[in-house]
Design a protein around this nucleic acid. Structure first.
Lengths: 154, 154
DNA sequence: TCTGTTTAGGTGTGCGTGCAACAAACTAAG
DNA sequence: CTTAGTTTGTTGCACGCACACCTAAACAGA
């Protein structure tokens, strides 16, 4: 209210920010709910599996993976623990660097990913893309690129 | 990759969705980090305090508050517990409905909010609004309104 | 008035996350 | 070769959250 103007934010600007938060949470919850219900797969796990599937040799160093997924290194360690326990991912040592570990997608992991992907993509379309006008994607791309700062997969 | 086209999503559409997630996490972490560092106040707590400050009589029913903040009812219960412990919020019974409880902002809570608000607003401007072109706010407003689905404060 | 249903809020529990501290392996300077 | 500094991944810990369940109060219809 009064606090707002003192810092030069309009009411609209604050409302937009709040709605952005709300939108993000809303979309994410829907998506995760569907993924959990249909495939017992959390969103973060799906993200890891899909990143690995895209990577050459289906493998990525823990550190690289943590950079792509939105997770701290320790968070990723635990998540890979779970995925390994479920047989979707394996850890393999790195030849050139004895400290390094690869997370590598198993066949079971690839199968699980393939199974869940239609649900995921349908969700992204239904909860996100369908709200965009046909020509808006380009604008939104430029916008989120600016907001995201760093690139997606360096 | 191959999985993508089968469901009719372009590579660009998926990239936009991923960047949106990345952007949201990035902004939120920056904002929360600054708020925590400067005022030892988590983002969720700031949100609650500001919602209460905006409400008539500085008070809101737990349920209403949970609707505005992006939190489950149980999550809000615990958060209010903490805020009450720190003296920023009090619980007061509701006259007309014996089940109801108001969360009401204390003077200390209002002071803490006033102290943290410049940091918060600066952060929103720096990490979000500054990435928008001067005329983009209106477009973004329409977009996020569609994405958020429900209204902000019904 | 009584009984079944709905709503408000809180509690028990388990999960996922980040931070700080750690050990091991690499790297660079002397 | 040695030593100091950096990077990689893991672990101890505490925190915050949601889900399922619970109690008390309100409401509905007979």
């Amino acid at each position: 209210m009064t606090l707002l103007r003192d810092e030069g934010l309009t009411v609209e600007e604050l409302a937009v920010w709040r709605m952005l938060q709300r939108a993000q949470v809303r979309i994410t919850r829907h998506l995760e709910g569907e993924l959990l219900l249909a495939h017992d797969l959390p969103l973060a796990s799906y993200d890891v599996l899909s990143r690995l599937a895209e990577a050459p040799e289906r493998r990525l160093r823990m550190n690289d993976l943590a950079g792509r997924v939105l997770l701290s290194r320790s968070g990723l360690t635990r998540l890979i623990d779970r995925l390994q326990r479920d047989g979707l991912v394996n850890r393999e040592a790195c030849e050139s660097d004895a400290r390094g570990l690869f997370a590598v997608l198993t066949d079971a992991g690839a199968a699980r990913l393939a199974e869940a992907t239609p649900t995921y993509l349908r969700g992204v379309r239904a909860h996100f893309l369908d709200s965009l006008g046909p020509d808006e994607i380009g604008q939104v791309r430029q916008l989120v690129t600016r907001l995201a700062g760093a690139t997606d997969a360096p």
